[in-house]
Design a protein around this nucleic acid. Structure first.
Length: 288
DNA sequence: CATCAGGACACAG
DNA sequence: CTGTGTCCTGAT
């Protein structure tokens, strides 16, 4: 590994917000190396990140090297993050304000779409540790060894040659069929995901939903965490509960909740979703 | 031993 | 368009 270096852009963070960013359900390829550091990979590059002295330090594998610019981009550490947070309606929304205050520096990761889609295809009716394990097993069996007990995402081309039965044995269950189905489509049209990432949010979402195993929730997760589409607002059971309790939306169905979110939280509603999601998950939202 | 989980899908009404 | 059963598997 390279020597530790300080990430110049990293300011106004918290350990809690940073930890939630890496292991709060956006990505499934980060592993703790201490109380305050994690090692992980994206695009087959290996990075270790450490929270210290209210900022972030990083080092990278010499063989599978990432640049500082890539890391800043991955972690959304440029100034556009601050203005996105500032754009959220925290001044008039005390629930959101509580979450933002409790989780300084919580960001949306800018992950590769192909990897993110894979993660969330495996996510249905699974907990974070279970998703992580399944992702790890597939990468270990079909991906490239990156050292440090890490394996890179195999890519859809490779996955298109894997039998459904093999994936089922790696704890994917009925999701194995989805992975094979998506792999086949992407193998026939390798530019499919690239095209999607250039489309406006709604069109991108409809195209993703046409893939097997991808419904509204998973499409929104793929777009928010894998295409930096902060307009996407994934409605899972957690956020659904949060909206029911704190915004009195018990009678709203998921589609109505998305419409409410877009109109109430604005064009960065996906970022608001992440604050609320983590706030709810960690029990940080106090009732008035 | 039954139920449910950070869903999707097929099918019925 | 809304409502329900089914699908893998592990945890409770």
């Amino acid at each position: 590994m390279s020597p530790w270096k300080e990430l110049i852009e990293a300011r106004n963070l918290s350990l809690l917000g940073f930890r939630e960013t890496l292991e709060g359900g956006q990505s499934f390829s980060w592993y703790p190396t201490s109380e305050t550091s994690w090692i992980g990979s994206f695009k087959s590059k290996v990075v270790e990140l450490k929270f210290s002295d209210n900022t972030i330090f990083w080092r990278t594998s010499l063989k599978h090297k990432a640049s500082e610019a890539e890391i800043i981009n991955y972690l959304w550490l440029d100034k556009s993050y601050e203005s996105a947070v500032n754009n959220l309606p925290w001044r008039s929304d005390s629930v959101l304000a509580q979450c933002i205050q409790a989780l300084p520096g919580l960001t949306i990761l800018n992950q590769p779409l192909e990897e993110t889609l894979f993660y969330f295809l495996l996510s249905s009716a699974k907990s974070i540790p279970q998703i992580k394990e399944a992702v790890f097993l597939v990468c270990k069996n079909f991906g490239t060894p990156l050292g440090n007990n890490l394996w890179g995402f195999p890519g859809w081309q490779v996955l298109s040659e894997v039998e459904e039965k093999e994936l089922r044995e790696l704890k994917l269950g009925y999701r194995a069929k989805y992975v094979c189905g998506v792999a086949k489509i992407l193998q026939e049209d390798p530019a499919y995901l690239k095209k999607i990432s250039r489309l406006p949010y709604q069109e991108a979402k409809s195209k993703l939903i046409s893939l097997p195993g991808v419904g509204p929730k998973i499409a929104d997760c793929a777009l928010l965490f894998g295409a930096k589409q902060t307009e996407a607002f994934p409605v899972d059971t957690w956020i659904s509960k949060t909206l029911d309790i704190h915004y009195n939306l018990e009678s709203f169905n998921p589609v109505q909740k998305i419409i409410f979110a877009r109109s109430h939280f604005g064009k960065f509603c996906g970022l608001a979703q992440q604050f609320l999601f983590s706030g709810e998950r960690l029990g940080l939202i106090k009732l008035n």
